[in-house]
Amino acid sequence: MTVSESQSLLHRIVIDAEICHGKPTIRGMRYPVESVLEYLAAGDSFEDVLAEFPDLEREDLLACLQFATQSLKMRSWQLVTA
Score class of each variant (00 low, 15 high):
Met1Gln: 14
Met1Trp: 12
Met1Thr: 13
Thr2Ile: 07
Thr2His: 02
Thr2Lys: 00
Val3Met: 14
Ser4Cys: 11
Ser4Val: 15
Ser4Glu: 15
Glu5Tyr: 12
Ser6Cys: 07
Ser6Pro: 02
Gln7Val: 09
Ser8Gln: 01
Ser8Tyr: 01
Ser8Glu: 11
Leu9Asn: 06
Leu9Glu: 02
Leu9Gln: 00
Leu10Glu: 03
His11Asn: 11
Ile13Arg: 05
Ile13Thr: 04
Ile13His: 04
Val14Glu: 10
Val14Phe: 04
Val14Gln: 09
Val14Cys: 08
Ile15Leu: 09
Ile15Thr: 14
Asp16Tyr: 02
Asp16Pro: 07
Ala17Cys: 12
Glu18Trp: 10
Glu18Ile: 12
Glu18Ser: 14
Ile19Met: 04
Ile19Pro: 03
Ile19Lys: 13
Ile19Phe: 05
His21Asp: 12
His21Arg: 13
His21Val: 13
Pro24Asp: 04
Pro24Lys: 06
Pro24Arg: 06
Thr25Trp: 02
Ile26Trp: 01
Ile26Thr: 01
Ile26Pro: 03
Gly28Pro: 01
Gly28Ile: 01
Met29Glu: 13
Met29Asp: 02
Tyr31Trp: 05
Tyr31Val: 04
Pro32Asp: 02
Pro32Trp: 03
Pro32Glu: 10
Pro32Phe: 11
Val33Leu: 10
Val33Cys: 06
Val33Asp: 05
Ser35Gly: 12
Ser35Met: 14
Val36Leu: 06
Val36Pro: 03
Leu37Met: 06
Glu38Ser: 11
Glu38Ile: 00
Glu38Gln: 12
Glu38Asn: 12
Glu38Leu: 07
Tyr39Asp: 15
Tyr39Val: 10
Leu40Tyr: 00
Leu40Ser: 03
Leu40His: 04
Ala41Thr: 00
Ala41His: 07
Ala42Cys: 00
Gly43Met: 08
Gly43Asp: 02
Ser45His: 03
Ser45Asn: 07
Ser45Phe: 00
Asp48Asn: 08
Asp48Val: 06
Asp48Glu: 01
Val49Asp: 07
Val49Tyr: 09
Val49Pro: 05
Ala51Leu: 03
Glu52Thr: 06
Glu52Arg: 11
Phe53Val: 08
Phe53His: 05
Phe53Ala: 05
Pro54Trp: 02
Pro54Glu: 07
Pro54Ser: 06
Asp55Glu: 07
Asp55Tyr: 06
Leu56His: 07
Leu56Asn: 00
Leu56Val: 01
Glu57Tyr: 11
Arg58Ile: 12
Arg58Ser: 12
Arg58Leu: 09
Glu59Trp: 02
Glu59Thr: 05
Leu61Val: 09
Leu62Ile: 01
Leu62Thr: 09
Ala63Met: 07
Cys64Gln: 03
Leu65Trp: 07
Leu65Asn: 03
Leu65Phe: 10
Gln66Trp: 09
Gln66Asp: 09
Phe67Arg: 01
Phe67Ser: 08
Ala68Val: 08
Ala68Asp: 10
Thr69Gly: 08
Gln70His: 04
Gln70Arg: 02
Ser71Glu: 13
Ser71Tyr: 09
Ser71His: 14
Ser71Leu: 13
Leu72Gln: 12
Lys73Cys: 13
Met74Phe: 03
Ser76Asn: 11
Ser76Gly: 14
Gln78His: 14
Gln78Asn: 08
Gln78Lys: 12
Val80Arg: 15
Val80Ser: 11
Val80Ile: 08
Val80Lys: 03
Val80Tyr: 10
Thr81Asp: 05
Thr81Ser: 12
Ala82Pro: 15
